[in-house]
Design a protein around this nucleic acid. Sequence first.
DNA 1: AAATTGGGTTGATATAGATCAAGGCCGCCG
DNA 2: CGGCGGCCTTGATCTATATCAACCCAATTT
Lengths: 194, 194
Amino acid sequence: MYDVFRKYINEVTSSIIPDDEFKHYEEAFAKKTMKKKQFFLHEGSVCKYAAFIVKGAMRLYSIDEKGHEHIVRFGIESWWMTDRESFQMLTPSRYNIDAVEDCELLVTTSEAVARLKDRSPLFLKLMQILDQNSYIASQHRIESTISYTAEEKFMQLMNTYPAFLHRFPQNMIASYLGLTPETLSRIRKQVLLK
Amino acid sequence: MYDVFRKYINEVTSSIIPDDEFKHYEEAFAKKTMKKKQFFLHEGSVCKYAAFIVKGAMRLYSIDEKGHEHIVRFGIESWWMTDRESFQMLTPSRYNIDAVEDCELLVTTSEAVARLKDRSPLFLKLMQILDQNSYIASQHRIESTISYTAEEKFMQLMNTYPAFLHRFPQNMIASYLGLTPETLSRIRKQVLLK
DNA sequence: AAATTGGGTTGATATAGATCAAGGCCGCCG
DNA sequence: CGGCGGCCTTGATCTATATCAACCCAATTT
């Protein structure tokens, strides 16, 4: 399990992490498994943990007054999952996180992250790269939600994260795109006919 | 001009930056003024500079095939403005950035930023804080665009960035929210009557 | 002072996408 | 094996928001 993580770090940072440095990582991250539909975070509680997804699929979502779910983020293998705001500030979260498939995770806390940043310059670099990439991806998503039609949103998702389409049911994809499942179904038909 | 910047850094990092360290900042950042409507970045070119806004207001936007502008970000005093993706990767940008009011800026390049991160741990810290805050703000905006009605989006903006409402014309606010100016006008009337 | 321009409003109509309702198709569990 | 629940589709309507068009007002230009 840790070897997947190690390989990931080497790739993202374009480096080779030495054994003695990686020992700190093993201390900082605990293994955890989750069954499908199990909650990682409940709305209202502090998100004490951040997870690196070794295997499986998760989602982060809010629930509005009408009881509708709105999926803000998906996560699959090699993605991170946490409510960043709650995790860092230790404030109660407005989101839920649960497992869409059975998951294998490496889980850490914000203190462990801070410690590891001090001990491993590579980890600091990793965090910087991730933050930057997350921010850039968020900007793209914002642009797409304010500019595009339903069909364009779907096409953009097809191009950007094709893996999502196989991993998550249509109603979740619809929620992620800000559409109803019915609309997505109709649009898919159109797009696939072309 | 630099004193505003210095004060800002002290506030955000909760520190007091020593004179000799701040000298590096003055080297890394050049003063620049811009007149209203002047372009800081044109679609298709690389965004070589990042600006700290000392005074004035700017916007970052894309233009779709139909010629419609979509405002992805606003910036006013003490905000940063750049196309992060293009600035870091040195890839051609899909966005335009221009001045909505006359501006006073402190401008830097990605090499200067990298150098400053090495020389000043405080600057590194600043960048980390900014990245994190930007990311968190982006997540909120995504949630709002996929979950909320036009009226809710407007109210959220009123609460989150009330200053924008006085600084930017309604048609730009509408674009930022992903609405037409007509719709925003009607919604404003409703909201203000309540 | 007339003309132009940029921003905002208002009204009439059109339409993308939501909502409501029903039915079909598995895969799973008793 | 049979029934049930999750997921998807399809059809009929409804509605929020876009579009089109006209007009207003204030500021700027000539």
